[in-house]
């Protein structure tokens, strides 16, 4: 079909879709990067700790989970190198505060032995969010960070898949628990996003596309786990509207 009035002219519009790279050396960029870099480093550390904790909850899966935890430490070191490469000191105090509510929820669930909640938080929510953020970051990253992040994103799919498989195998028993965990934790992702919207914007990462890409991964994982489209739309809307 064709329309002449609303769609911008092809030649004018096509160039605009490619975001120009930011100035990686500017003070504004480095300032924003210090917090974002802190978040990814802390995120990988938390992921490491969470998979270690899950290994204790699921002794029969311990070997796999410890391996996942090791991978997260490797990612952490990669992102630390990205900061050093740009001569940026990551703001770890900010990053620790940033993860606090999600960390608390994970620890409470771990204390109660709620495996499904722990997996939803770490292996689905955080992994889906990381994958979305890394994908959006890669085209606007500096060349060094791009290479590191491309390597990381491949591993993260494995982690998402791990949580997916376990939840799928136990779906009937844990469906209600997943829904409750979604309701309690999805709004935290929104709050966290709001908190870094400005800094992410400095890195040319738009909040709107971060949310959409995250939801795509999140819904895809939960659909594979066993939820219907109708349930997924409602579950997603609960936290992000």
């Amino acid at each position: 079909m064709s329309n002449s009035t609303t769609v911008p002219h092809p030649l004018a519009s096509s160039a605009d879709l490619v975001t120009p790279l930011p100035d990686f050396t500017s003070a504004t960029y480095k300032d924003a990067y210090s917090r974002i870099n802190g978040i990814v480093i802390e995120g990988e550390q938390e992921a490491h700790d969470n998979y270690q904790a899950l290994a204790r909850l699921l002794p029969e899966q311990a070997e796999n989970l410890v391996q996942l935890a090791r991978m997260e430490m490797k990612h952490k070191r990669g992102f630390q190198a990205c900061g050093r490469n740009l001569k940026v000191e990551p703001d770890m105090d900010f990053a620790k505060r940033f993860f606090e509510p999600l960390r608390n929820n994970f620890q409470v669930a771990r204390g109660e032995g709620k495996v499904a909640t722990c997996l939803l938080i770490q292996a689905i929510l955080i992994e889906a969010f990381s994958i979305a953020a890394y994908h959006i970051y890669i085209p606007v990253a500096d060349p060094f960070a791009r290479k590191v992040t491309e390597g990381v994103v491949k591993d993260e799919y494995l982690h998402l898949n791990y949580g997916q498989e376990w939840l799928k195998a136990h779906f009937d028993q844990v469906k209600e628990e997943i829904m409750a965990a979604n309701k309690a934790n999805l709004p935290l992702i929104k709050t966290m996003l709001d908190e870094v919207e400005k800094d992410a914007g400095q890195l040319q990462m738009e909040k709107e596309s971060l949310i959409e890409d995250f939801l795509i991964g999140y819904q895809e994982a939960l659909s594979d786990v066993g939820f219907t489209t109708r349930e997924l739309i409602r579950m997603s809307a609960q936290g992000l509207s």
Binding site: E208, I211, L215, T229, R230, A237, Q238, S241
Partner: peptide, 19 residues
């Protein structure tokens, strides 16, 4: 029956994935 989307603003739709 998707009330959050029915009440949501354009931003909500901008970040809603395909269904």
């Amino acid at each position: 029956g998707y009330m959050e989307h029915a009440k949501g603003d354009l931003d909500t739709w901008c970040s809603t994935p395909p269904q």
